[in-house]
Amino acid sequence: MNQKIKRKKSLWRRMQENRKILAAESTVLPLLLGIVIFICWETQILHGILHTDTFTLPLPSRIANIMGDNVNKIMTNVWATVFVALIGLAAGSLLGYVIAVIAALFPKWGSSGVTIVAAFNAIPIVALAPVMTNWTKGVSEDANTRSMVAKILVVMIVCMANMSINAYRGLTEVQPFSEELMQSLVAGKKEVLVKLRIPNSIPYIFTALKVAVPSSVISALVSEYFAEYIIGVGRQIRENIVLAQYSTAWAYIVAACLIGIIMYAVTMIAENILLKKHA
């Protein structure tokens, strides 16, 4: 009687198959890379590699000191950018989802309509921001209000296109047997939409938000470059670079990175909580 000899898996193979170790690697390895880059930056090894100086690329300690000395001013600009990003993200995502719902209810022209909306995603933000600034000049006599509306519109358009594409997939790519079961129970379009299509689209909504959240921050920053009212992290980056205040510009760049990271982390936490309940 022939018996197969089971070979013991190597330690490396067992480590690669261990989920806890894989999860730890996904956190520890990027953290170690960040620490290495930080050390090379602070010790000016990075400056030697990039052939630059501490004036153009300030040391992290110098950037931290500037952020600590200008907390109030930086936070004022951070809240202005966060406000634009959040309002534009919410308005764009809601409008994109409504477009996707209408397209799913009327499938004959729905896919074509979503394709047209998706074309907005191809418009460069650098081109869109100055156009919106000019279009909104008649909105108000207050420069702050005009600038705010223009920036929100830029973010809204960017987020709308992304949400409509993903939400339309979630609303239409349902399990065939589920739709057939609803039809066999003589369910109307409204019941199919509320009880089948919308629940099915929830994971797709978060897929869209994972892309839309960083895009909302980037589009808010870029739109601030062209805004009339001088406020916001993006505008401060531009102004300080023009004035050759690179250390201060880098302080605002770090603030912009933190905005994106925090907003993305909140999105991931919300996804984990809501999708567990959804499942």
Results as ranks from 00 to 15, higher is better:
Val158Lys: 11
Val158Gly: 09
Cys159Gly: 09
Cys159Glu: 06
Met160Lys: 04
Ala161Pro: 10
Asn162Met: 11
Ile165Thr: 12
Ile165Gly: 05
Ile165Gln: 06
Ala167Val: 12
Ala167Arg: 09
Tyr168Lys: 00
Gly170Asp: 14
Leu171Phe: 05
Leu171Tyr: 00
Leu171Ser: 00
Leu171Cys: 01
Thr172Arg: 12
Thr172Ala: 04
Thr172Phe: 08
Glu173Gly: 10
Val174Cys: 14
Gln175Phe: 09
Gln175Arg: 13
Gln175Asp: 14
Pro176Tyr: 05
Pro176Lys: 08
Phe177His: 13
Glu179Met: 13
Glu180Arg: 05
Glu180Gly: 04
Met182Asn: 03
Gln183Ser: 13
Ser184Trp: 03
Ser184Gly: 14
Leu185Thr: 10
Leu185Arg: 14
Val186Gln: 11
Ala187Arg: 05
Ala187Phe: 06
Ala187Gly: 14
Gly188Glu: 08
Gly188Trp: 11
Gly188Ala: 10
Gly188Ile: 11
Lys190Ala: 11
Lys190Pro: 04
Glu191Pro: 10
Val192Ser: 15
Leu193Met: 15
Val194Ile: 15
Lys195Ser: 13
Arg197Leu: 13
Pro199Asp: 08
Asn200Gln: 06
Asn200Phe: 00
Ile202Ala: 04
Ile202Arg: 07
Ile202Pro: 11
Ile202Asn: 11
Tyr204Gly: 01
Tyr204Asn: 12
Ile205Thr: 02
Phe206His: 05
Phe206Leu: 06
Ala208Val: 01
Leu209Arg: 06
Lys210Ile: 07
Val211Ser: 02
Val211Cys: 03
Ala212Pro: 02
Val213Leu: 02
Val213Phe: 02
Val213Asn: 12
Pro214Glu: 00
Pro214Asn: 00
Ser216Ala: 14
Ser219Gln: 10
Ser219Asn: 08
Ala220Met: 02
Leu221Ile: 15
Val222Pro: 09
Val222Gln: 09
Ser223Trp: 04
Ser223Gly: 03
Tyr225Thr: 07
Tyr225Asn: 08
Tyr225Ser: 04
Tyr225Glu: 02
Tyr225Gly: 05
Tyr225Asp: 03
Ala227Gln: 11
Glu228Ala: 06
Tyr229Pro: 03
Tyr229Ala: 00
Val233Arg: 09
Val233Lys: 08
Gly234Trp: 07
Gly234Gln: 03
Arg235Trp: 08
Gln236Cys: 03
Gln236Ile: 02
Ile237Lys: 01
Ile237Pro: 00
Arg238Tyr: 15
Glu239Lys: 07
Asn240Gly: 11
Ile241Trp: 08
Val242Asp: 09
Val242Phe: 13
Val242His: 07
Leu243Gln: 12
Ala244Phe: 12
Tyr246Gly: 10
Tyr252Lys: 05
Val254Asn: 00
Val254Asp: 00
Cys257His: 04
Leu258Tyr: 01
Ile259Met: 03
Gly260Val: 00
Ile262Val: 15
Met263Tyr: 00
Tyr264Arg: 08
Ala265Ile: 14
Ala265His: 10
Ile269Thr: 13
Ala270Met: 15
Glu271Met: 07
Asn272Ile: 11
Ile273Arg: 05
Lys276Met: 14
Lys276Asp: 09
Lys276Thr: 14
His278Tyr: 13
His278Glu: 13
Ala279Glu: 10
Ala279Tyr: 14
Ala279Asp: 10
